[in-house]
Computed example of a mutant assay.
Amino acid sequence: MLLAADVGNTNVVFALYAMDGKGGREIKARWRIATDPRRTGDEYAVWLLQLLQIEGFARTDVTQIIIGSVVPRAIHNLTVLAEKYFSITPLIAGEGAAEWGFLIDVDEPRSLGADRALNTIAAHEKYPGDKIVVDFGTATTFDAVDFNGAYKGGIIAPGINLSLDALVGNTAKLPRIAIRSPESDSVMGRNTEDQMLIGVFWGYIAMMEGLIERMRQQIGRPAMVIATGGLAILFDKHTRMFGAVDADLTLDGLAILAERAAR
């Protein structure tokens, strides 16, 4: 089985994949922990090995490990986890046998984040034609992937929680609110909390739809929009922009790279 680790700025997501060697893959379990570059391999092991056991798996069930990270400092300790507790030298996404394997058609190809590269790989394999991948994470990214699987560029915007943090942190009287789906489609709030939610939520929807439409115009061909990340489902209820919501897109990119490396 494959253990995939997707290291984001906020969380590390581990997924245990059953692979059939012919492109078929199924996630059997997944676990999430807060990203902390100081967390040692031993600390990861105490947590992860217990969770494996709870789900009915043994460490010997893991035969391959791949790590994709936008936090370079975290890679060393995850490598220690793989080598010390699983006796496996992990694949590092974008390096060696796990090179990206697609054209990165931008001015600075090496600056493309691992998560966006993995989304590109998975989107091209799973969906036809031109794609726009919207990933709702700490930042929200919009990435154009053409019908040949080449990465053509994109946009980085503050995530909705970062936007809310900036609003609350730089005002004296505005309260902390939770991001949630508004109870109505009205854009005229009757109290401070509702007005804040409307501004952040519907403002974010408007920003997202506007940027996607501009990207489509620049691409010049029909482009399917694929949404991923923790808040994708929340926004999907309030926009018609998404052709698919794929929560496992980044993890699937890791699994595809691992399959290629094994071949």
Rank of each mutant, 00 (worst) to 15 (best):
G8C: 07
L118K: 05
G243R: 15
K28A: 00
G243S: 11
E183C: 02
E108G: 01
G153M: 10
I233S: 14
A244Q: 12
A172V: 02
Q217I: 10
D61E: 12
L16R: 09
D146L: 12
A114N: 07
L16C: 05
L16N: 00
P182Y: 11
I226D: 05
M188W: 04
G94Y: 03
I256R: 01
Y44L: 08
S163Y: 10
A93S: 07
N77D: 10
N148H: 15
G101P: 07
D42V: 13
M1T: 10
W202G: 03
G8M: 09
K84G: 05
E55P: 05
D194C: 08
T120F: 04
K237R: 12
I205N: 02
G101Y: 11
G23H: 07
Q64P: 00
A18Q: 08
A114C: 07
P72C: 01
T63N: 08
L2S: 03
S163F: 14
A178F: 05
T140L: 01
A117G: 06
L257S: 14
L211R: 14
G68V: 04
W47S: 12
I179Q: 03
L81E: 06
L78T: 03
S184P: 04
M196A: 03
A244S: 14
G189A: 02
R263Q: 14
W100C: 03
P109T: 05
A232R: 05
A150T: 09
K131A: 09
F57Q: 03
A5H: 10
W202T: 04
V168P: 02
G210K: 03
S186L: 01
L254R: 13
I219M: 12
F147G: 09
R38K: 15
D194N: 05
L174T: 04
E209I: 03
A97I: 04
T63M: 07
W100M: 01
R180I: 02
R176N: 08
V225T: 05
E43Q: 11
L257D: 13
V106L: 11
S163W: 12
E95P: 03
A34L: 13
E26M: 09
E108C: 03
E183H: 05
V46S: 09
M1R: 00
A178D: 06
Y204A: 07
A244R: 12
G94H: 04
